[in-house]
Design a protein around this nucleic acid. Structure first.
Lengths: 113, 113
DNA sequence: TGACTATATGTCTTATCTGACATATAGTTC
DNA sequence: GAACTATATGTCAGATAAGACATATAGTCA
C-alpha cells in the first residue's frame, strides 16, 4: 500500500487518525475513499462550471446546503450513490464518471486549476 | 430518453412497473440503475472467474449469501457503495470499475459469454 | 465595524441499507 | 424421488445515511 496518504484522508474527516487505524485500512478501503474524493472534486468542479452556489445546487437536488457541503468535502457520511446521482443530475455522463473514477480529472479549458 | 428499457429494469425488480412510473424515471435515475446493473454483472463475472460460490464470496465480504445474490441480481436494496467495495475486495482496480461504469464489459478470454 | 453572501460543521429525526435468517427454487447425482 | 449443492426471494432488527436546521467560519464591500 502506498504510504503518505494519511494527512489527505484525515483532512477530509475520515477516521484514519492513529497510525494503527491507518494501518488497519485495507487497500480496498483506501481505493474506495479515493474514488469518493475524486467524485467529490468532480461535483464541485461541475457546480462551479454552472456558476451555482451550494444552496442553488441543493434546490436542484431537493437536498440541503449542508449536505452539498459535505458531499464536496468528502465527508464519510456521504454515500457513493448520492455523489453519483448528484453528478448525473448536473449533466455528467457515464463516461464522465468513469473518467473521474479512473483518477483522470478532466481538465476542461482554462478553469482546470 | 431511450425507450424500451422497461422490461430489463422490471426484471431486476426496480419499481418501474407502470407506464406512468416509467415515464417518471428521469434520465439520471435510468443511468444510475444501468451503472449499478453493470457493476452487478461485473461482480458475478469476477466471482465466477475465481471459482467462488456465493457463500464463499459472502464469507470473504463478511456478509451473507442472500446479499450476494441480491447484489448480483441488481436488487434495488443494494447500494453502489456495497457493489464497489465488494468488487474492490475481489481485486478489481479503479480502472476496472471505470470500464464497467462506462458500459464497456471487459471480455476476458473465452469466458466472456 | 457591520451587513451580506458563501461555505463549513454539529446534531437531530426519519428513511434507507445491511447482514442474518428462513425458505423457496433450480440443478446434480445417486 | 431423496440427498445434496447453488442460487433466489422475503422479512426483519439494527446500523448507516438522508435531509433539515442551527450555528460557525470565511470572504467581500460599504
Amino acid at each position: 500500500m502506498k504510504k503518505m496518504k494519511r494527512e489527505k484522508l484525515e483532512a477530509a474527516g475520515w477516521a484514519v487518525g492513529s497510525v494503527k487505524e491507518f494501518l488497519g485500512l485495507s487497500e480496498a478501503d483506501t481505493v474506495l475513499i479515493e474514488m469518493k474524493l475524486a467524485l467529490s472534486r468532480s461535483l464541485r468542479d461541475r457546480r462551479k462550471k454552472y456558476g451555482l452556489s451550494q444552496v442553488q445546487l441543493a434546490e436542484r437536488l431537493h437536498s440541503s446546503q449542508s449536505r452539498v457541503a459535505k458531499m464536496e468535502a468528502g465527508d464519510p457520511s456521504v454515500s457513493m450513490d448520492l455523489l453519483v446521482s448528484s453528478l448525473l443530475l448536473l449533466g455528467a455522463s457515464s463516461a464522465d464518471l468513469a473518467d473521474a473514477i479512473r483518477g483522470r480529472e478532466k481538465k476542461t479549458g482554462p478553469r482546470a486549476a
